[in-house]
Design a protein around this nucleic acid. Structure first.
Lengths: 208, 208
DNA sequence: GTCGCAATGTGACAGGCTGTCATGTATTAT
DNA sequence: ATAATACATGACAGCCTGTCACATTGCGAC
């Protein structure tokens, strides 16, 4: 987390640093991002940077937090469009992320570049972090009657799985943009799997 | 990929380098791993290293390839125990990975340390790489009659989802070893979701 | 206003790391 | 024996990071 000092900084200076950071992170991979270049672009002395952030990872975590909040609100809107149907989330959100209008939304633009550069941006930090459990604003938009079990715990699990479908679809597309139609089909198939199950009817399960 | 020269190296020298590499990679994160330390430990001159590998990532990719093959054979065994039931894979494999006997298997030991150090070792490179599609040896062990649709394409999707369940369970456990029982329950719930679906019966789907 | 303390700004520096390259040595083919 | 090819090696240039001693500013107390 940035230091208190950072938040007390004059607006303009803080913005300069943030902008330069995004510019660097959308240009090269996290691993190759250089504090040197960031502070040079932002005209911030080296010592000052370390007064605000512990290190590069501290900075990155902070920047990604913004994204996380943005996505939650985006997903909330989509979920409301879908009348609270969690299973509809992957395909709808995919369209929003990959479709044309994605290219006008600055936050989505940054996200897309980052996922491209970082071969999936360590999906775990996204799935395990923001998308591990259903955030409150999203839970409010869920229609529990659509779930086999209307509890929040159950919704958590469904949400996690649908998010995984969405995340892999996005990563796959950004690494091979030619395959949008196949990815769409795959999302439909996986969503259907989550809705109705993939086991043959009436086959006895192996005991666990 | 390592150069041809690397493979022509005398056994002993190659082993020294590989061992030192594993030692480094199970001690610090990928990001912090140092070629300097590896070559010092292996008594390999700097110039030689670059004759064998392009860079650190080249080395890491090569080492992880071994792991991948090992896992496929491990999962194959488990799948055969489960009489070809893909849905049984996550819980069974989880027990094998996290249970006691994991600590005697050298490859599993390395895997566990690496996942711990790298907060999930960039799950994407594992899911998107080795586990994106059902590898042939695994497909041979699947009983397609247990699937709603017995095609290989369908099995691919089911496999991908079960692997995701397994992967997240492992990562979660290694980051918080206290929660094994909860994670077990979560695996069961998610597996059940994949088997029988999570949508309420008879609810009309939102059109996509 | 001025004294003093706390907060902040600053850039030189030490120590690490990487990738290259010129030069040396072994091996093979002719 | 000679040339050509493959391989070994370590010094080096260049980059990067985190720190630290010192300068500067802001601000309340007197």
């Amino acid at each position: 987390m940035p230091t208190a000092t950072f938040f007390r900084l004059p607006e303009e200076k803080r913005k300069r640093l943030i902008d330069a950071s995004w510019a660097e992170l959308t240009r090269v991979r996290f691993a190759d991002a250089s504090i040197n270049r960031i502070i040079a672009a932002a005209h911030i002395p080296r010592g000052s940077f370390y007064q605000y952030f512990e290190d590069k990872e501290d900075l990155i975590r902070y920047l990604l937090e913004d994204m996380r909040e943005y996505f939650i609100s985006l997903l909330r809107n989509i979920l409301m469009e879908a009348k609270g149907d969690l299973f509809a989330l992957p395909l709808l959100a995919y369209g929003r992320f990959i479709g044309q209008q994605g290219h006008t939304d600055p936050m989505l633009c940054q996200f897309i570049k980052i996922v491209r550069l970082n071969e999936g941006m360590d999906m775990q930090s996204f799935m395990g972090g923001p998308m591990q459990f259903l955030p409150d604003p999203l839970w409010e938009a869920v229609d529990p009657a659509r779930l086999r079990e209307p509890s929040r715990e159950y919704a958590d699990q469904v949400f996690h799985m649908t998010c995984a479908v969405l995340a892999f679809a996005i990563v796959e597309t950004l690494q091979n943009p030619a395959c949008v139609p196949q990815v769409r089909e795959r999302i439909k198939l996986r969503t259907d799997l989550l809705r109705h199950g993939g086991a043959a009817d009436g086959y006895k399960e192996e005991p666990l």
